[in-house]
Design a protein around this nucleic acid. Structure first.
Lengths: 184, 184
DNA sequence: TGAGCTATGTTTAGAGCTAAACGTACCAGT
DNA sequence: ACTGGTACGTTTAGCTCTAAACATAGCTCA
């Protein structure tokens, strides 16, 4: 979120360790009675969880010698299966960033020898981006580290609770996709 | 976060409208059997929801003539109640960004006449930041717009589901606070 | 008195992102 | 062949953030 980071709207991000989302909602009710605060207890924790996961992941990745943006790129390629090669356009589609950002990410990764660019034989102006052996090895290590760590992080909830949470999140996400960007 | 943005780790952000988190987990199971993928269906939707809410909020705020970072600042002051005044240190504590970022946010807001800085009479190097009338009026309008909008966005879930989701998110967040940063 | 220590705020360098402007490559209609 | 339109990738300007270096105010203890 680049936008990442922080700043929330009406409720966003205040008090990382301080007041709870419920307390923020209560404060708005006190200061501005009548304003609808029902969304705060959903949006605020999502915001904070996203940041906690992001910060923790950055710590893990720093130790692995890679950054989140580069791993995002390499992971999409790795997960696509052999020959670990996609066009820039496809990379953009499978990422939450703009085409310009993808172009810069690929340029950085190429400079570090993690991917290689080549014109698409299928024609057009398309460019194929492929993992190099170095990139393949790095993504392998990094993914193990990240998934292992995050697997630990969610054990505070029971398997049943995790399933329930995943279901609710997915339902909300699906609904929002239709509600916000029918163009998506 | 700043990363705000985007790029996720192993699963992060790919396919805003494409493959589901479940499909990403399945792809990793296929490409790299044995890797723990249980966290993916929780972390990925949280990531995507955070970005959807952030992008939508930015659209709302652009129309109101303010940006998310500034609203974050003004909202904390407004919600703190009269005299709508806090020290920079307190602003940093109630926000998810660094002290440097707060300093820059306050400087921008002061330049626009939304807040006013003054030395803390209590001594020390503390600086008090207070809402101006202009800032007060702007935050009033903006908060109404943002909370109204977000209240609509979550109606895809029933009140019971929203309560359940809020509870699970809060439990996960509380657990992670103890697990990641006991220093927090 | 004054040498450290702690707490606060600000400044600076650098990173990575978005939005918009560009530069090509191919295709469709005439 | 020409003219436009569409698709794609790259480049650039500008923004806001983080991390780290600074600068300053009060406090503690000899």
């Amino acid at each position: 979120m680049t936008e990442a980071g922080a700043g929330g709207g009406a409720r966003s991000a205040e008090e990382s360790a301080g007041r709870s989302a419920a307390a923020i909602a209560a404060a708005w009710q006190r200061e501005r009675p009548g304003v609808p605060t029902d969304s705060i207890e959903i949006v605020t924790p999502i915001w904070r969880l996203a940041k906690l996961f992001a910060d923790d992941r950055n710590r893990v990745l720093r130790a692995a010698g890679i950054d989140a943006a580069t791993l995002d790129l390499l992971a999409v390629l790795r997960r696509s299966g052999p020959p670990y090669e996609l066009t820039t356009r496809e990379l953009t589609r499978r990422t939450l960033v703009t085409a310009g950002a993808v172009s810069q990410r690929v340029a950085r990764a190429e400079r570090e020898g993690l991917v290689r660019r080549s014109p698409d034989p299928a024609g057009g102006r398309a460019v194929l981006v492929a993992l190099t052996p170095d990139g393949h090895a790095l993504v392998e290590r990094s993914v193990d580290a990240v998934l292992g760590r995050e697997s630990d992080l969610v054990t505070g909830l029971s398997p049943a609770e995790r399933g329930q949470l995943a279901g609710l999140l997915d339902r909300l996400l699906t609904d929002l996709h239709g509600r916000i960007g029918p163009s998506d």
